[in-house]
């Protein structure tokens, strides 16, 4: 039953909510219960910015079953303004034109579907800024 799991992750997936350590200020995505930097357990919820740049990437030609129809797709690590890094597909650009350092912005997209009858899984992908 994926729906409980899915619903639980909505704040991170839909709104890019992260946790900022109130003691040392480090921002964690996804949110954590203890700060690996200073061991503080107090956090405030912050929304990540949507702009960033590509740190590294690949073009996936053989994908997992759920993504098989989308190959080839670019997948990369994006460093957002402020320094938080996350993994995201890079779309709306021919994969061969993606480059390290490319400015991108995160946009709300469908990631995959749990089969024909299951839930639809949304999140963010990076598009050229």
């Amino acid at each position: 039953m994926p729906s409980a799991n899915y619903t639980r992750e909505i704040p991170q997936r839909y709104r890019l909510e992260a946790s900022r350590c109130v003691k040392c200020g480090q921002v964690h995505y996804p949110p954590r219960l203890i700060c690996p930097g200073c061991r503080s357990r107090q956090f405030e919820t912050v929304a990540l910015p949507s702009g960033g740049k590509v740190v590294t990437y690949t073009i996936i030609s053989v994908g997992p079953s759920d993504f098989a129809a989308e190959v080839p797709y670019a997948l990369g690590i994006v460093e957002l303004e402020g320094g938080v890094r996350l993994m995201a597909q890079i779309v709306d650009v021919p994969p061969e034109k993606v480059s390290i350092g490319m400015p991108v912005t995160l946009e709300f997209r469908k990631l995959y579907e749990e089969g024909k009858a299951g839930i639809i899984c949304y999140g963010h992908k990076a598009v050229p800024a």
């Binding site: 996804p30 590294t56 690949t58 073009i59 690590i77 993994m87």
Partner: peptide
């Protein structure tokens, strides 16, 4: 699974990102 696999990451894909960064 929640933050790499969810986005379509595969193992060759993760190592490919390491390779791309190493090459650059």
């Amino acid at each position: 699974g929640e933050y790499e696999g969810y986005h379509g990451a595969t193992f060759p894909g993760l190592y490919a990102m390491i390779a791309k960064a190493h090459m650059a």
